[in-house]
Design a protein around this nucleic acid. Structure first.
Lengths: 210, 210
DNA sequence: CAGAAAATGGACCCGCAAGTCCAAAATTGG
DNA sequence: CCAATTTTGGACTTGCGGGTCCATTTTCTG
């Protein structure tokens, strides 16, 4: 497989997206290669042709595919965190996105399945988190420049906390089916930012561990 | 298996804890029943004697076992959120606990493996989250009674947000290996509570979805 | 101490799903 | 249009791991 015909690329993509959809609906453990084949009208030889590493390589590709969608689904709001209404709009977009997604987080499912072997899976998540945090931090800096947030507040640390709240909210949603934790976490994070302008703060620097 | 001999109960416990340890170290997918047997010096018939439901029942038991440890590991600090230093001590305890645990969250691993079938797994997590949130909320109420937190703030909602931050922090730690997100989330949550006394707040009531 | 019930050892079965292989069909490039 | 390359179909192999079974030993009960 040195070169990929247009037809070949299309087939590869069909397999990838079909696998992603099955995993989104039924989970990783319940998705076999044969399921993917029948769902995408392909054959074993095709799958192993385009994913020589077999199941593991396919799962990693799905992880990358899903990771790529996460930030895209938050645009354009994520890029425009330049006013409080914009932050609220972003909040609503995030809540809506994960409400739609339902109780299965494909990215968490895949990485938790690939586990500690296949370091590539963790790398995908790590990179996603890094970019996500950077975008939020950029929004914080923008509001600082506009005088809406205490300039002494550490943007990266605040962004890290908000990001953690989102992840945890989604995680809890996976068990409970409720988005209330996600909403509360985002609301608290934003409220914290808003309130920062008016007073001195404790969370501006790093803190030593116990 | 109507009655359990003392010896029988010990064997059952040995299997359970051995399985939990293997899962904590190598993950669910990489832990087979045979691994558990050889690690605990037991035989197939014993495992199926004490866990007639086989692998699934064992995994569920491990989930319960791990869930039971979570809150216990936070005591007594979790019960005594009655002053700001006490909150900080609890924060340190949580960070320390998950720093020790390393990159694998056994509870998340198990539930994510059992997935949507086996509703019992999600129930275990849901109950744990409920109790955890209740304990945090109790701490918030205590501080409200002491005049240290704005009485108009919704304790359950604040506790939900803080809990989400913890969960997300742990989740991110699983990929990155760093506890910075967990620390930031806890610090932001506590800072928010502390700052609440001094001003009006936006996050006291429920908010409609988009 | 005797009989019942529980605990144990380990061989065996079996289905599933990952992965291999080869030959045929389709596509590409000159 | 022809040769090279890529794409495709699907049968086949294989190993792993969950689950079954029965004989034997140990423990409890009265």
């Amino acid at each position: 497989m040195q070169t990929l015909t247009r037809k070949g690329a299309a087939t590869r993509q069909r397999i990838l997206e079909g696998a992603a959809e099955l995993i989104r609906e039924h989970g990783v453990a319940a998705t076999t290669l044969d399921d993917v084949l029948s769902a995408t009208s392909t054959s074993k030889s095709q799958l192993f042709h385009y994913f020589p590493g077999g199941r593991e390589e396919l799962l990693l590709a799905v992880a990358r595919f899903e990771a790529g969608r996460v930030l895209e689904d938050q645009r354009p709001q994520l890029d425009e965190l330049t006013s409080w209404p914009a932050w609220e709009a972003w909040r609503d977009k995030v809540v809506d996105r994960y409400r739609r997604q339902g109780r299965l987080c494909p990215l968490n499912a895949v990485t938790s399945h690939l586990g500690d072997r296949t370091p590539g899976a963790q790398a995908v998540v790590t990179e996603l988190m890094g970019r996500w945090q950077a975008e939020i931090a950029a929004g914080v800096r923008h509001m600082q420049a506009a005088g809406e947030i205490d300039p002494g507040l550490d943007p990266e640390r605040a962004a890290a906390a908000i990001l953690a709240g989102i992840q945890g909210g989604v995680l809890i949603q996976m068990s409970t089916g409720q988005t209330t934790h996600l909403e509360s976490a985002l609301d608290l994070g934003i409220a914290y930012l808003r309130s920062s302008r008016d007073q001195a703060h404790q969370v501006t620097g790093s803190r030593s561990a116990p």
